[in-house]
Design a protein around this nucleic acid. Structure first.
Ligand code: MN
Ligand code: MN
Ligand code: MN
Ligand code: MN
Lengths: 128, 128
DNA sequence: GACAAAAGTTAGACATGGCTAACTTATCTA
DNA sequence: TAGATAAGTTAGCCATGTCTAACTTTTGTC
């Protein structure tokens, strides 16, 4: 059975928020807008949607935090993102292209496929 | 530079239309609706968009045809679809999952990545 | 501490891609 | 060939995700 999963928007946002908190100390709308290539009002609206979905906690004009469920989703997304990128790179694809393609592909990779990517990745290590 | 590409909707539609014409002799809205899991009015609306985009030719209540440019896009999409599916299968992923994941992944695979998939596929043949 | 600049929000518009209900056209069948 | 059924369309609604313009709040600087 297919469990209802978050939108690509939600996945990209929580992933990025987790990353910003880790590397910058906090997640701010300006940064998010720049990184995702959208305008600030778009970020405001989407963050409020994430809040409604229980993925994010925050009050107006302050930094953005992840709820436990947001954390969980973010970790899963980051893990998946890393695997997809590493897998593409293991095929000889340049980092830049791998990153760009992974940003879309990651949202369509089932658990089965993710595991297969992981396996193939392990194989590619042996052969080096 | 990134060339403006058709929407995923457009790609899925022309791909399916080409397939239906090949296997059924003609492409009809009911079939398209069933195959894509949407309702007939959605198909009507989207077909008219494809027509506006110059990918499709047709008059009301009649079957749907591809323009030359629609044909071209359809062929590219079908080719890409086949490669992605074959590649996933070559990783040991079951056909069903491969098909489902490919339906989304195909729209995010750059030319570079597609070529890499093709290469890896050739390799996997040698090792059998 | 005042005020300028930066960051963030609100309001309102738009495109895309879904849907249902109601209608029209085409096709089948007795 | 009439009437029933199937197929297709239209109208109007909704959710998502984007934008610009204008406003508010926060931050930094003198
Ligand atoms: Mn992504
Ligand atoms: Mn990602
Ligand atoms: Mn597809
Ligand atoms: Mn496809």
């Amino acid at each position: 059975m297919r469990q209802a999963h978050e939108s690509e928007m939600a996945e990209d946002y929580v992933e990025l928020i987790a990353e910003l908190i880790e590397t910058r100390g906090e997640a701010r709308p300006v940064e998010i807008a720049e990184r995702l290539g959208v305008k600030p009002p778009t970020v405001t609206k989407n963050i409020s949607r994430l809040k409604a979905a229980g993925l994010v906690r925050r009050e107006p004009y302050r930094a953005i935090f992840l709820t436990d469920s947001g954390q969980e989703l973010a970790e899963a997304c980051r893990q998946r993102h890393r695997i997809v990128v590493a897998f593409l790179c293991s095929l000889g694809i340049d980092e830049e292209t791998a990153e760009r393609d992974a940003e879309g592909i990651e949202h369509h990779v089932s658990e089965t496929t993710l595991v297969a990517f992981g396996q193939a990745l392990k194989q590619s290590w042996k052969h080096e």
